[in-house]
Each structure stands twice: as C-alpha cells, then as structure tokens.
Design a protein around this nucleic acid. Structure first.
Lengths: 379, 379
DNA sequence: GTGAAAGCGCTAACAG
DNA sequence: CTGTTAGCGCTTTCAC
C-alpha cells in the first residue's frame, strides 16, 4: 500500500538508513544528502509508518484515559486537561468510557488494546480491590477518583473526606440545621460508604449533631436526573431540609431544578453545595457553591506519574498524590439577594498550592488542601 | 520484554501457527491442541501484541475524533456517542481537541498519528477548503459541523440554515419583534457568514422584516463567558432585544446569566433560543428552548461512513448526510409561568426519522428534518 | 489439521 | 558520515 523507507531510498539512490536518519532528524547528515532525500520524500508523499516504529521500539506514545461517562462535564473537562498534559510529553490520549459498569472497567484495566497503549489512567466506580490485584496487564496504571484501593498502583485524588467536611462546615457556619446528602449509591451496599458521605457524617458529628440518616438519599447514577429525582423523593417524604450537600454538581443541579419547580428558593429556603466545580456551576440563574478540585493538577499528576513509570524509573513504591481543592462560595449558599457576580476561580493560575510537578519528578505529593475561599463566618 | 507467540509455541510444543490459530479462534483446531495451547497461554500470561498485528494487517482498528473543545458539552456528548458507535464496529476512538486553532486542525487532518489511525472524524472551525484539498494523508476523513467545504470528503451535518430559520420563526410566532443573534465570529470575516446567522437573516427577511444588524453580536469563542459578554455588550449599547437566538446553548446560557444579573426575566422580557440541546439546557431554573440535532444519528452516520470506506468499498462520490434535528420548546420561550416541566426529548428512541444506518450501508441520507415539537401558533 | 518460512516498515547494531 | 543486516511479533501463503 503505502510508500516505505525503502521506496524513498531507492528513489533518492541512498540507503534506507540515510532516509531514516533524515526522517528522524539525526544530526550528522550532509545538507546535500538531506536535501536529496527530502526531495524524494516529498515527491513520493512518504509518511512514516508509526505502527512499524511502535513495534520496533516497544512503545507507542499512546496512553488511555477511561472515565465512567464523558457526558459528565467533570470528566469531559478532566479529559481535556489530560489530553493537554499528555501532549506536553508527546503522548496522545485514547479516551474511553465505561458507563460505570464493573465489567467494562475490568475489561479496560485488563486487556484494553494490549501493547498499543503504553499506560492507562482509569477513573473507576465499581472496580474492586481484588479486580486490581488480579490484574495481568503489566503496563502502568494510574487510578483517579473517589475510591481508594489497597492495590499497588498510583492513586491521584483529593482528600474527599476533608473536602466534604469543608462543604458541610460551610453550611453549618451559615446556620443551617437540616443538611441533606444527595447521591449515595443504591447498589453494592456492602462496599465502604462513599468518602463524601463519610465526610458529611463526620462533620455533623464533630459539630455535635446526630447525622440524620433520613436526610441521606441514594441515587441510581450521578446525573442531573438523579439529583432531581432524589430531591423530589426527599420532599415527597415530607423531609424538607434547609440545606443540601450533593455528591457532585450534576446532582446539585438536578436538585436545584426540583426546588425551583416546587416553588422553593435557593439559597433562602434551601442552600445547596455541589462537588466538582464544572463550568456550568458558574452560570445559571443561581450559581452553585461547590468544592473545586484542582483539575489541572489532577490531570498533570496523573500524566506525570504515568510518564515517569513509562520512562523506566521503576519505583516499587506506589504513590498517592493529593491534589488541592477549595470551596468556592457562590450564590447557592450566598446572601439571599442572588444578584452578586459569581466568584470565578482563577483556574490554573493562582489556584491551589498543588505540588508543582512540571518537569521535576513527582515525589511525596501529599499537598495540603488549598485554603478555602471564604470560610464564611456564620451569617 | 513480553511473551510472544513463539514462547507459547515452545512451551506448548507446537508451532507458532497453531498458537496463532488458537488465539484467533480458527475453526479447524483439534480440541486437544486447543486445550494444550490455551494452557500454555494461561501459564505464560500471554497477551497478543496488537502493534505487531496492526503492522502486519495494515490497519489498527483505531479511529480519531477531533473536536474543537472537549469542555463544550455538545462535543463531549457527541464524543461519547462516537465512542459507542465505533465500539459497535469494534473500533476504538482516539479523542483529540484542537482548541479551534487552524494550525492544530491542519496538523490533525494531515499527519495525525499516521498509519496508527485508520480514519479521522473531524469537526473543524477554521480549516479552509484549500487546506483540505491539499491534504496528503490518504486515510479516510469525515467532516462534521457547521462549515461546508468544496472538498472530496464525506460531510455530516444538519441543515443549519433551515434549523436556524426554524428557531427564528418560533420567536416570530411568539410575537417577538427585536430578535438578536449572538455568536457570529469576530475573526476571519472574509469567510462566508455562519450558516446559522444566514438562517437568522433569511427568516427575518422572509417575514418581511429588515434584519437589524445592530442586533448581531460577535463573540471571540463559543463558551458561556462569550455569551455573557455578548449579551452585556448588547444591553450596554442600549439595544435591548425582546428575543435572542444564540449560536449555541453555551452562549445562550451565558446570555441568560447576564439577563438575570441585569434584572431581566426570561422569557417575559427576553425569550432565548439556543442550539445543540446539551443536557444542561434541560435543567436550570429556566430551561432552554433549543435546536436539537440528532447527536446519535450524527455519530452513527459519521462512524458508518468511515467504516464503510475503511472496508474498502471505494466510493468515489463523497457524500453529504443530513441528520435530523428538531426544535425543542422549553421555558425560555414558553409561557411566562416558568413552572412547567421541561419537555425532555425522547433521546434516541422515538426521535427524528433519521435514516437507519445500523448495519445497512448508508446511501442517500438527506433526511427530512424531524417535525418540530410545537410550532406554537402565535401567542 | 499443522508446520516452516517470508515479510509488514521500521530502528539499532555494527561495519565501512 | 553512510550502508548492511537482523529482528520487533504477528499473519499469511504454501507445503506436508
């Protein structure tokens, strides 16, 4: 089919090696030679066959990024950041989504495009530690997301418990009494409770309140519809909270929609805090207070981890990096006027003091959570 | 490094070919042989090297999907649909984003992972016809998005002019007088006006109105912030419209946010129509009326086109497919109560009568635009 | 049914 | 500085 090095060599009347040298920009080639070869390349429209190169070199320069759902803006935004971070190391990213199904997560972690991806960044939901332990695939794997595993792989995640506690504390500081939690999962109960739910419990307990479990609503998924349904269920039960802490922004958005439909006002009747800081939460007629994980840092740490292992620096020690996060206070918990401009986080720049992991290898990256924006002395 | 066919063959005491047969599930292998080989495979933890297979077969089973910005939910949702559609044909998708930069669009279309991707689905913004004409790469390319090119490549896009006209007609039917257009581009003016802007002009003209060009606001990009800024600019100019047709949903969202901040009510003071029907537009305290392109159909048509050409069916004739769309009327142009439930489109199922392109080859796919939901007799 | 050998296009050694 | 050769791991004739 295509034109190969050999064809070019023939045409230019030189050896294959010389052409290869030109293609790879080897320093020691006479300008004359280079010109001659280049001409042949242009005439023939030669393009190097990367597949062959990959086979030869044993690596492809492709890493995979697998998330539950690309339709969730958090993962879409994260995917964008990962693609950019990878590009900085000359890696290309293969994005896949698992629909949060354990089976697909397993498949991806086990045998996904074996030997064509150099490594994998995976954000699992249903995967279990034992699935990971039994992993055959030898290419490096970096885990993202809320779940923590007792498996020998790098894990990048903000301190979910602490972040959740920060959110709940904010609501408590506002004087809220009945703080609901939306978004615990209905399925697979046996597995440890969500860290965010634990944060909710811990912070309430620390404040001397008995966590009211009737204010915890499980959802089937993590989407807006789930949030809307959960909020409706809570209200239908006659348990009207005066604040809601949602598992993520989408659930919070859905909850706010239900509140609007029921004629309740945010934040006056019900204050709402989300988690993720997707861009959408900075718009809307009531902007959303939320926990903002440093997505750039997460992407960078994940890619850097992977790239470092790919570079052959064999480090037995799997590492846990804790990127920064902060609480961004917006209208959904703000003063009742609901007219102030959204406080837009200075994304990327003066953001959290996440460990700088640019070129230097990432080491002990347990960064202190960023100072929260506005600890808000009780209203 | 890895364990190869040869290793397995040695271990099992058979030839390479036999192992290959087992791995590829060839029919004519004795059960005994198969078992023996399988055992060796398991013992050695053999995983086929797909890179080698790719080199040998000349194809990889990977296609690329390049969009301007993964942070735009429209593209993220589309990417998800493309991934799923590709999976149905056993293709994996490599997602990239171009930031809408012509340079990167060019790069992607020209030499992106040459020979490792079998084909490319590209949604360009700044690419010009001549860029496409001069394309060296021989792998198939399918174009998505608003722009139309005089180049020999398949193009999948809804009828943007007609869709825009539908949106504007809806606003006219509502009795709106001053309909603004938000989101024409400031740069590269020489290139033909956006089709959606043309639709706005045409429909106004058809209604006997002189399109008021002072109601057209250019934006730098296609995000929420651009919409917010454009709306603010328009209001600051003292040109208060009673309706807004935005280039896309994000711009519409930003515009609505500005309207809220300025104390104006949607839809009472200003009705708003978007374009894309991202999920977000179905939530929010005022749900958004929007043009809903059939994303599933777009993804399916694009992937099917690509796969068909990849299958060697050489069809000289490039094709233009026109997936369906519909107008989904929601609160942002609805009756002023603003309390009715959002009319959620039956995504996927009873949606537009888009050409069924499941397994059968896609042929003449100029589908009639789906019947719009609620032509809304003038208020 | 199974085995032996050639070669996909490239890079890495090693000569010259 | 340039040419020759071997081989990455696999599939694919073609014999047996």
């Amino acid at each position: 089919m295509g034109v190969s090095l050999k064809d070019v060599a023939q045409r230019a009347g030189v050896s294959i090696k010389t052409v290869s040298n030109v293609v790879n920009n080897y320093p020691h080639v006479t300008p004359h030679m280079r010109a001659k070869v280049q001409q042949a390349i242009d005439e023939l429209g030669y393009r190097p066959n990367l597949t062959a190169r990959h086979l030869r070199k044993g690596r492809t320069g492709i890493i995979a990024f697998a998330v539950p759902e690309l339709g969730n803006p958090y993962f879409a935004e994260l995917a964008g950041a990962v693609i950019d971070a990878a590009a900085r190391h000359d890696y290309t990213v293969l994005v896949d989504h698992t629909a949060g199904l354990r089976e697909r997560e397993l498949l991806v972690s086990q045998e996904f495009r074996s030997h064509v991806i150099d490594g994998l960044i995976l954000s699992p939901i249903h995967l279990e530690t034992e699935d990971l332990i039994g992993r055959q695939e030898t290419s490096p794997l970096v885990l993202l997301g809320e779940r923590e595993y007792e498996a020998p792989y790098d894990q990048i995640a903000i301190d979910n418990v602490a972040a959740a506690r920060t959110a709940v504390r904010h609501l408590l500081d506002l004087g809220r009494e009945r703080i609901a939690f939306l978004g615990s999962r209905t399925d697979r109960e046996r597995r440890p409770a969500h860290l965010r739910l634990r944060g909710w419990r811990e912070e309430l307990a620390a404040a001397g309140r008995e966590p009211d479990e009737t204010l915890v609503v499980a959802t089937d998924g993590y989407g807006r519809a789930d949030g809307a349904a959960a909020m409706a269920a809570l209200l239908d039960r006659g348990r009207r909270p005066d604040a809601v802490f949602a598992y993520n922004d989408l659930i919070a958005m859905g909850a706010m929609r239900t509140l609007t439909e029921r004629g309740l006002t945010v934040p006056d009747d019900v204050a709402v805090v989300g988690f993720d800081d997707i861009e959408e939460s900075r718009y809307g007629s009531v902007t959303l207070t939320t926990i903002s994980p440093d997505k750039q840092a997460i992407a960078r740490l994940a890619v850097d981890s992977l790239v470092e292992r790919l570079s052959g620096h064999v480090m037995a020690e799997p590492r846990r990096a804790r990127p920064g996060y902060r609480l961004v206070v917006r209208e959904s918990t703000g003063p009742a006027e609901g007219r102030q401009a959204a406080r837009v986080p200075a994304q990327g720049a003066g953001s959290a003091p996440a460990p700088e992991a640019g070129s230097a290898p990432v080491r002990e990256t347990r960064s202190v959570p960023a100072p929260e924006a506005g600890p808000a002395p009780a209203t």
